[in-house]
Measured scan of single mutants.
Amino acid sequence: MQRVNMIMAESPGLITICLLGYLLSAECTVFLDHENANKILNRPKRYNSGKLEEFVQGNLERECMEEKCSFEEAREVFENTERTTEFWKQYVDGDQCESNPCLNGGSCKDDINSYECWCPFGFEGKNCELDVTCNIKNGRCEQFCKNSADNKVVCSCTEGYRLAENQKSCEPAVPFPCGRVSVSQTSKLTRAETVFPDVDYVNSTEAETILDNITQSTQSFNDFTRVVGGEDAKPGQFPWQVVLNGKVDAFCGGSIVNEKWIVTAAHCVETGVKITVVAGEHNIEETEHTEQKRNVIRIIPHHNYNAAINKYNHDIALLELDEPLVLNSYVTPICIADKEYTNIFLKFGSGYVSGWGRVFHKGRSALVLQYLRVPLVDRATCLRSTKFTIYNNMFCAGFHEGGRDSCQGDSGGPHVTEVEGTSFLTGIISWGEECAMKGKYGIYTKVSRYVNWIKEKTKLT
């Protein structure tokens, strides 16, 4: 034993070699072989497995989906700052455009905790909710729209109204504003409101030439003092309507412009014939205590009207009353817009006519005020429907199939267009061939041609 100890002390290297040989010859039971080890760690190889990531292109799944990435790591994937920024906006807080917040056709661009709407022409605001041009839906104005110097929408209202708090709607500024039905039992019968379409306001006024200088022999019209197929109006439903009495009662109609003036057809009036105007009328054979009678003290036909040349060209006249009318729910003026808007309103496509005229061709006159909704007829169809001249200051309205029309005794009465609950004068009943005849239409004086003249002559002093 002493000898062994001496050998170990003198030859430590020998001992180490012996131990190493023993270990190498022993069977290893701690580690699995290569094949079995792979069965336990069965993990798919990654895209760049075996390579240094710093030297390969980034992978979106590896960089940002398996674990949260930084902007720089995302930049490695896209290799483009702009594309990385677009991805980053949604990656950080989701897609803010998912709810489609942009209105009126706006395009949404996502941002971090926010979004941006790219608005089409005519709109602005956070969600493109603000109209900035009158060309689109009248700028959301209830009545009139004008573009300011910086191309912003400025709404306005006709006389007797003021802008509401929203700067879009119009509200009454006087007790009985024009064009409004205020009798409670008839307010439910107000005709369907007309909503502004998209309009090209630059070209809204037709490029028409008034044929002022045409000389033409007097034409022989049949029954051209021209509501057939209409309905009984309720008291106060058309408070701007008046009836004219002269040699015979209810020979023509008219509309209240203001307390002192009536507008009617020029062919209705004769110099030297006494005319009485009755406002607030409903049943011409009954006294309903809503009527107001006034005498006409002055007749002003349009300066281009000449019955000797043509009885229905420039067929418009103004009547001055001896005493002002007292405005109330049964006696209310009709609204008159400017030339541009009167023309736009007419193009809405349908209007209402009213009167006490004959209820059928050569038949009896109506006792109760009649009204009828009539569609506008395109000019080409209008011209083809008659052998008589249709001037540019006239328009056609009615039904091709016949059966409904204005008729004798309705002449001078109103053709009105309702705009968001307020009625505007767009025409004056003038003439036609018979009444409600198939293929024939009622012919009306186009008020847009005469609004400046009306307003100039009827100013209240």
Rank of each mutant, 00 (worst) to 15 (best):
Gly413Gln: 12
Lys137Ile: 04
Glu129Pro: 05
Val202Leu: 09
Gly125Met: 02
Ser423Phe: 13
His289Ser: 13
Tyr371Cys: 11
Glu159Gln: 06
Gly160His: 03
Val202Asp: 10
Thr158Lys: 02
Ala149Trp: 04
Thr29Ala: 05
Leu60Phe: 13
Tyr371Pro: 07
Gly280Tyr: 02
Ile429Trp: 14
Val368Trp: 07
Asp223Leu: 12
Gly432Tyr: 13
Pro375Phe: 06
Val30Leu: 12
Glu286Ala: 08
Asn313Leu: 10
Lys260Val: 03
Tyr391Ala: 14
Leu319Val: 13
Val77Lys: 12
Val228Ala: 12
Gly160Met: 02
Asp410Cys: 14
Gln185Glu: 10
Cys170Met: 01
Glu76Phe: 15
Val56Ile: 04
Phe196Met: 04
Arg384Met: 12
Pro12Lys: 10
Pro172His: 05
Ala337Glu: 01
Gly402Asn: 12
Ile334Pro: 00
Pro414Gln: 10
Glu67Arg: 14
Gln241Tyr: 13
His361Tyr: 07
Thr458Gln: 02
Ala207Glu: 11
Lys39Trp: 04
Glu340Trp: 14
Ile214Met: 05
Lys126Ser: 12
Glu208His: 10
Leu14Ser: 02
Leu244Asn: 01
Glu434Leu: 15
Glu142Cys: 01
Ser411Cys: 14
Ile334Lys: 00
Gln96Trp: 13
Ile300Gly: 00
Thr389Phe: 09
Asn452Ala: 10
Arg46Leu: 05
Tyr391Pro: 14
Val257Met: 02
Asn328Trp: 00
Arg449Leu: 11
Ala233Pro: 09
Phe55Gly: 07
Thr190Tyr: 08
Leu130Glu: 12
Asp198Trp: 12
Gly58Val: 15
Cys407Glu: 03
Glu79Asp: 12
Phe224Glu: 03
Leu425Ala: 00
Phe78Pro: 15
Val269Ala: 11
Gln167Tyr: 08
Thr461Asp: 14
Asp212Glu: 08
Pro333Phe: 00
Lys89Gly: 09
Ile17Val: 08
Ile17Trp: 09
Ser204Phe: 11
Lys68Glu: 15
Gly403Phe: 08
Cys382Lys: 02
Asp33Met: 06
Ile344Gln: 04
Thr332Gln: 04
Gln143Asp: 00
Trp240Ala: 00
Cys141Lys: 00
Ile316His: 00
Asn304Gly: 05
Asn42Arg: 03
Thr290Ala: 07
Ile443Asp: 01
Val296Tyr: 00
Gly427Trp: 00
Leu52His: 14
Val278Met: 06
Ala233Asn: 10
Ala279Arg: 00
Asn135Tyr: 04
Cys102Asp: 01
Lys89Gln: 10
Gly280Gln: 02
Asn48Glu: 15
Lys89Val: 05
Val227Pro: 10
Val228Ser: 09
Gly355Leu: 06
Arg404Val: 08
Lys39Cys: 06
Trp118Phe: 11
Ala366Asp: 14
Ser49Asn: 15
Asp150Trp: 06
Leu130Asp: 11
Tyr450Thr: 01
Cys382Ser: 02
Phe31Glu: 15
Thr422Cys: 07
Ala207His: 09
Leu325Lys: 00
Gln90Ala: 10
Lys274Ser: 05
Leu372Met: 14
Glu67Leu: 08
Lys152Gly: 10
Glu171Asp: 09
Asp410Tyr: 10
Ala9Thr: 13
Phe87Tyr: 15
Tyr161Asn: 01
Gly58Arg: 05
Lys126Gly: 08
Lys457Ile: 09
Phe224Leu: 06
Gly349Phe: 10
Glu61Ala: 11
Arg226Ser: 05
Arg140Phe: 07
Arg162Ala: 06
Glu124Leu: 12
Ile300Glu: 05
Val278Asn: 03
Gly412Asn: 06
Gly398Asn: 04
Thr84Tyr: 04
Ile40Gly: 15
Gln237Gly: 10
Phe388Ala: 06
Glu286Val: 05
Thr389His: 12
Ala308Lys: 12
Ala173Thr: 08
Ser49Glu: 15
Leu327Tyr: 03
Tyr22Met: 15
Ile214Asn: 03
Cys117Val: 01
Phe399Ser: 03
Ser184Trp: 07
Cys178Trp: 00
Leu189His: 13
Arg191Tyr: 03
Thr271Leu: 11
Asn104Tyr: 11
Cys117Ala: 02
Val243Ile: 11
Arg379Phe: 14
Ala436Leu: 10
Ala207Met: 06
Gln167Val: 06
Cys18Glu: 01
Ile428Pro: 00
Arg373Phe: 03
Asn104Leu: 03
Ala26Phe: 03
Arg83Phe: 08
Ser182Asp: 05
Pro175Asp: 02
Thr158Tyr: 03
Asp378Ile: 03
Asn310Phe: 04
Lys438Val: 07
Gly363Ala: 05
Ile428Tyr: 08
Ala279Asn: 01
Glu159Ser: 05
Met394Gln: 04
Cys141Trp: 01
Val353Pro: 02
Ser114Thr: 09
Pro324Cys: 03
Leu60Glu: 14
Ile429Asn: 11
Cys119Val: 01
Cys119Thr: 02
Lys168Pro: 02
Val181Lys: 03
Ala265Asp: 00
Glu53Trp: 04
Ala279Ser: 02
Val368Asn: 04
Asp33Gln: 06
Val56Ala: 14
Ala266Thr: 01
Phe345Thr: 01
Leu327Gly: 01
Ala366Thr: 08
Asn59Arg: 08
Val30Met: 12
Leu14Lys: 02
Ser255Pro: 00
Lys152Pro: 05
Asp150Pro: 07
Asp322Leu: 01
Gly363Ser: 12
Val154Gln: 12
Thr342Lys: 01
Leu383His: 14
Glu323Tyr: 06
Asn42Cys: 09
Arg226Thr: 10
Asp338Gly: 13
Asp322Ile: 01
Pro239Asp: 00
Glu433Ser: 11
Leu372Asn: 10
Val257Phe: 01
Asp232Trp: 10
Ile297Gln: 06
Lys168Gln: 12
Ser385Trp: 14
Asn313Ile: 08
Gly412Trp: 11
Gln219Met: 09
Gly442Val: 15
Asn38Ile: 07
Gly105Arg: 12
Glu165Leu: 07
Lys311Gly: 09
Leu321Asn: 00
Gln185Ile: 10
Phe360Trp: 14
Tyr161Glu: 00
His34Asn: 10
Ser385Ala: 09
Gly246Tyr: 07
Ser25Trp: 10
Asp405Ile: 12
Glu54Ala: 08
Arg75Tyr: 11
Asp232His: 04
Ala279Leu: 00
Asn283Ala: 10
Lys260Trp: 04
Arg294Gln: 01
Lys126Tyr: 06
Cys108Lys: 03
Gly351Ile: 01
Ile428Asn: 01
Thr85Phe: 04
Ala366Ser: 03
Val242Asn: 00
Asn295Trp: 04
Met394Tyr: 06
Ser99Met: 14
Gly357Ile: 14
Phe71Asp: 15
Asn328Val: 00
Asn166Ser: 04
Val183Gln: 10
Leu32Asp: 15
Cys97Trp: 02
Lys51Asn: 11
Ser114Lys: 07
Cys18Trp: 04
Ser354Ala: 14
Ile112Asn: 13
Val202Glu: 09
Leu60Ala: 15
Pro333Tyr: 01
Arg43Met: 08
Asn80Gly: 15
Glu320Ser: 02
Pro324Tyr: 03
Asn48Ile: 04
Asn306Tyr: 04
His282Gln: 11
Glu165Val: 08
Ala366Gly: 12
Gly402Ile: 14
Thr84Arg: 14
His282Asn: 13
Gly398Lys: 12
Leu211Ser: 04
Thr332Arg: 14
Lys68Ser: 07
Lys387Pro: 04
Glu142Tyr: 03
Asn151His: 09
Gly363Ile: 07
Val353Thr: 14
Ala149Asn: 09
Lys39Phe: 09
Glu286Trp: 09
Asp405Gly: 13
Ser385His: 15
Glu54His: 08
Pro101Leu: 12
Glu73Thr: 10
Gly272Pro: 10
Leu24Ala: 07
Ala337Leu: 01
Leu460Asn: 08
Phe121Ala: 08
Val30Ala: 05
Tyr371Trp: 14
Asn258Glu: 02
Gly21Tyr: 12
Glu420Gly: 12
Glu129Asn: 11
Ser365Phe: 03
Lys68Ala: 14
Cys145Val: 02
Glu434Asp: 10
Trp261Asn: 01
Ala308Phe: 05
Lys109Asn: 07
Lys459Pro: 05
Asp95Trp: 10
Asn38Val: 09
Thr461Leu: 13
Ser411His: 12
Val243Leu: 08
Leu130Val: 12
Tyr371Gly: 14
Thr209Val: 13
Val181Pro: 06
Pro175Thr: 04
Ile17Asp: 00
Ile297Arg: 07
Gln167Ser: 10
Arg404Asp: 14
Pro175Arg: 08
Thr422Phe: 03
Asn36Asp: 10
